[in-house]
């Protein structure tokens, strides 16, 4: 039996406190890229009771994604937006989801991110990461941006960090481990970075800021 919405929210109130939970429930977070970072971030935010997620990715689930991304073997070939929506609705049935199955470009970013309080950069391509970061920080001064750089390889878990670069810009990762040099993306280390991003988003929504 799936719990009622009232039972669901009551359980969240008990875990996070009513004041914080009401902030999470009324928030909208845009997750740009639904790979190793974005799919794990979305799951953490959905479980925590964030009210609305905007999920953006043009790609389909591939067999090479399954070692670190929140998809299932029977979802290979589906659009990530649709597959992740199914999985998130199973986890958190009352979450509000908006999906955009398209590439993020300089032209469509404002439209795709409309209504988001926080933008989560979760791409894999470094140039796409920089493009979104600059565009959001230059043209959307009301939004927070939580981005990631450096989580490839088998390096120490403890080198993944969260830093506040400007008042609205947080950066997670070790800052240097590039998949092109490390040659691998390991689920646990990518999930560490995703957890840093998800936790930063929840902290910002709760009104807790890094110094």
């Amino acid at each position: 039996m799936i719990p009622t919405k009232e039972e669901w929210n009551e359980a969240l109130f008990r875990r996070h406190g009513k004041d914080v939970q009401e902030k999470l429930l009324s928030a909208t977070v845009a997750v740009c890229g639904l790979g190793g970072l974005g799919s794990n971030i979305a799951v953490a935010l959905a479980r925590a009771g964030v009210g609305k997620l905007i999920l953006i990715d043009f790609d389909r689930v591939d067999i090479t994604n399954l070692h670190r991304q929140q998809y299932k073997a029977n979802q290979i070939g589906k659009y990530k937006t649709e597959a992740l929506s199914e999985n998130l609705k199973e986890i958190a049935p009352y979450i509000d989801l908006v999906i955009h199955t398209e590439r993020v470009t300089e032209e469509n970013t404002a439209y795709l991110l409309k209504g988001a309080d926080i933008v989560c950069e979760a791409f894999d391509n470094a140039e796409c990461k920089a493009m979104l970061t600059n565009l959001v920080l230059e043209t959307m001064p009301d939004k927070f941006l939580v981005a990631a750089s450096g989580m490839a390889g088998f390096g120490s878990a403890n080198s993944i960090k969260t830093r506040r670069i400007t008042s609205k810009f947080y950066l997670c990762g070790d800052g240097e481990s590039d998949v092109a040099e490390k040659g691998s993306l390991v689920s646990s280390r990518v999930m560490l970075c995703a957890a840093h991003q998800a936790h930063t988003i929840l902290r910002v929504l709760a009104g807790e800021f890094e110094t």
Binding site: G33, D124, A130, A152, G173, G175, K182
Partner: peptide, 24 residues
Amino acid sequence: KAQYSETVLKDGDSLEIVSFAGGG
């Protein structure tokens, strides 16, 4: 980005250059 060529660095400025690593 459009202002890199007209932003003059002054004594006492503090900058951070974030260079994104690929992977995600």
